[in-house]
């Protein structure tokens, strides 16, 4: 099929911080001795990402996501392990490597606060040594796509957050990077701006750019990512196409049930009650591997007499929340 452009093998990152006590006595003590604390941020993770992919990199805060991302962008050295991206080892051939990638950090701006984005673009043209005609062509195309023509000449400080974030994307992609890393790119944005940016990412992806995306916004993930890597406690707990995510805990459906008779004593194998609005109206989770849908319908109608009902997929949030909470899922 397609070739993998990112290969990570047994990546490990351990660092040392210092413990500081909270009591007065501890803080006096810490003036003289500090207790080193070893933190294993990333524990032997391995994965591959194919060219042309949009890969969502998920995990709770402190799971090791940003450490991994920093290693992949050449900012940090790993403790040990191999990384090969576009044929480079990021931290060893940093300058050659970063010329071919781009990055957008939702919380760290590459724009310059008091001057227009156009000037920041110009500075980056010089830094990446982009030929003038290619720069003009790329800029025009992206300005068009993101609809930021009017704001380019205004000082950054007067722009809205959405406008600024669009310009961040332009900065990151002016030099035609093959891979673009996005670190929480839609944080704090309104719905319209989010949609515009997602559309842009899809468009650029169709033209061949590979995206690696970390985010806490699952709408980003659902609308963009095809591959999902879930990381928790420094370990990968899920690495598959997004379709498989909802089936991670088996084949389950969410059922909303309204009946004539009371549901209070209603119990079936494979059925879990989630919440109940009143005696005759409740939500359930049904495990289809234990109780097929057809059998459930027949029994429920017979016992309770169904008035109305709806069947939904388990929402991705619930799956991810469950995954974050498990320490180590059984395979």
């Amino acid at each position: 099929m397609s070739e993998s452009i990112i290969t990570v093998r047994n990546l490990n990152k351990t660092y040392t911080t210092y413990e500081r006590g909270s009591s007065f006595k501890d803080s006096v003590k810490s003036l003289f001795v500090r207790k080193p604390l070893k933190v294993e941020a990333v524990k032997n993770i391995s994965f591959e990402i194919q060219k042309g992919e949009i890969c969502g990199f998920l995990g709770p805060n402190g799971a090791g996501k940003s450490t991994t991302l920093k290693i992949l962008t050449g900012i940090l050295f790993p403790t040990h392990g191999e990384v090969n991206i576009l044929g480079y080892v990021p931290w060893k051939q940093r300058r050659e490597y970063v010329a071919r990638i781009g990055a957008v950090f939702g919380q760290k701006s590459q724009l310059l606060w008091d001057i227009p984005p156009a000037d920041a673009f110009e500075l980056n043209r010089a830094i990446y040594n982009i030929p003038r005609d290619r720069f003009k062509k790329n800029l025009a195309a992206m300005v068009e796509l993101l609809d930021v023509g009017e704001v380019m000449g205004k000082p950054t400080r007067v722009l809205s957050l959405g406008e600024r974030m669009k310009c961040e994307f332009i900065i990151a992609m002016l030099h035609d990077p093959e891979i673009v890393f996005l670190d929480e790119p839609t944080i704090g944005l309104d719905v319209v701006a989010k949609e515009k940016i997602r559309g842009f990412v899809k468009e650029m992806n169709q033209k061949g750019t590979t995206f690696i995306l970390t985010t806490h916004d699952l709408d980003d993930v659902e609308s963009l990512a095809r591959q999902i890597i879930l990381i928790n406690h420094g370990e990968i707990i899920f690495n598959d196409p997004i379709e498989k995510l909802s089936r991670f805990f088996g084949c389950k459906k969410k059922i909303n049930l309204q009946t004539d008779r009371s549901q209070i004593d209603f119990q079936l194998p494979g059925l879990k009650s989630l919440d109940r609005r009143n005696d005759t109206h409740g939500n359930y989770e049904l495990d289809l591997d234990i109780l097929p849908l057809k059998a459930f319908l027949a029994q429920a109608d017979e016992i309770l007499c169904i008035k109305d009902m709806s069947i939904e997929e388990i929402p991705i949030e619930s799956v991810i929340t469950a995954l974050y909470e498990t320490k180590k899922p059984e395979d």
Binding site: T73, G74, I75, E96, V98, A103, F105, K108, I127, Y128
Partner: peptide
């Protein structure tokens, strides 16, 4: 501020 990282993702020293 943590923006030193932004200097490291540029193809210059």
């Amino acid at each position: 501020e943590g923006t030193f990282d932004l200097l490291l993702i540029k193809p210059r020293s």
